[in-house]
């Protein structure tokens, strides 16, 4: 084991060593947490308190709340990806391009502005949550999808054209079918922001529970252990979705090497 090589830029190391290094950092972080919070003055809740917070959350139905959030996530993502794909697929057509571009610019609108208008149309809180998320997520998805399609090399379009594809066939083969795997990747790339948005929306527009509601309640109690425990849970669920999306892209699309 040549530890010196671990510090050489661009050095390729074996999987086992890479795992060893990650493990080392993890141990370092955890021990820092234990030692750093053992004194009298505490900036951060000690592990015991977080564990207690976690148990409290569990007893309050953490699992149900997680599934509530995941369900909301699934509903909102499905609707917005359908929307976004529709618009993004229109973007190669000159007559519609400005519309799609304008939609993508709309992501600079603040969340509150959108909720204000939606509140005038939608009454039910759950529906409201979904639509706020749909509007918001769609704008991000459209932006990312557009940039994926814009990055398609001219050669790929020309290749299809030289095989007697009509322009519509080019759109179908190269942009739609040829970039399906990127749709999942776009979901994944935007997951961090949409996941954060989802929890925020849940805490602003309280409806059928969810992780956002738990955060809001913890706020009230000023219970540090609970807040940190919840953050960890939210982080882990987010990472879980990320892993799941990446896994499905690689298993569904063998040609996908991004």
């Amino acid at each position: 084991m040549n530890i010196k090589s671990w510090f050489r830029p661009f050095e390729k190391i074996s999987r086992r060593h890479a795992a060893l290094i990650s493990g080392f950092w993890l141990v370092l972080l955890i021990s820092f947490w234990f030692i750093g919070t053992s004194g009298a003055k505490k900036l951060f809740p000690p592990p015991a308190l977080v564990w207690q917070g976690f148990k409290d959350l569990y007893n309050e139905g953490l699992v149900v709340h997680i599934f509530s959030s995941l369900w909301l996530c699934l509903q909102a993502t499905t609707i917005s990806i359908v929307f976004s794909l529709f618009f993004a697929y229109l973007s190669p057509i000159p007559a519609f391009k400005p519309v799609v571009k304008m939609l993508s610019r709309m992501r600079y609108l603040p969340l509150t502005g959108i909720t204000f208008y939606l509140a005038m149309i939608v009454r039910d809180a759950r529906t409201m949550q979904i639509w706020v998320l749909v509007v918001f997520m769609s704008l991000y998805f459209i932006t990312s999808l557009m940039s994926v399609f814009k990055d398609i090399p001219q050669q790929e379009l020309d290749h299809a054209r030289s095989l007697q594809c009509s322009r519509w066939e080019v759109l179908w083969e190269v942009v739609i079918k040829g970039r399906l795997d990127y749709v999942i990747e776009v979901l994944r790339q935007n997951l961090a922001i949409t996941w954060m948005m989802l929890v925020t929306v849940e805490s602003i527009l309280v409806a059928a529970g969810g992780l956002g509601v738990l955060i809001k309640n913890s706020d009230k109690f000023m219970n540090h252990g609970r807040i940190v425990a919840l953050q960890i849970v939210i982080l882990l669920v987010g990472l879980g979705i990320d892993w799941f999306l990446d896994f499905s892209r690689r298993t569904l699309f063998r040609y996908s090497k991004l």
Binding site: Q155, H159, R161, S162, C165, K177, G178, D181
Partner: peptide, 29 residues
């Protein structure tokens, strides 16, 4: 467009078609 076959310098193919599928597609007409 399409009157002339063109093989570019980078030998571009459909990234989502296997060799067999690509040839099948080429013969579709």
């Amino acid at each position: 467009e399409g009157d002339v076959g063109f093989v570019d310098q980078k030998y571009t193919l459909f990234r989502h078609k296997t060799v067999y599928q690509a040839l099948q597609f080429a013969m579709r007409k």
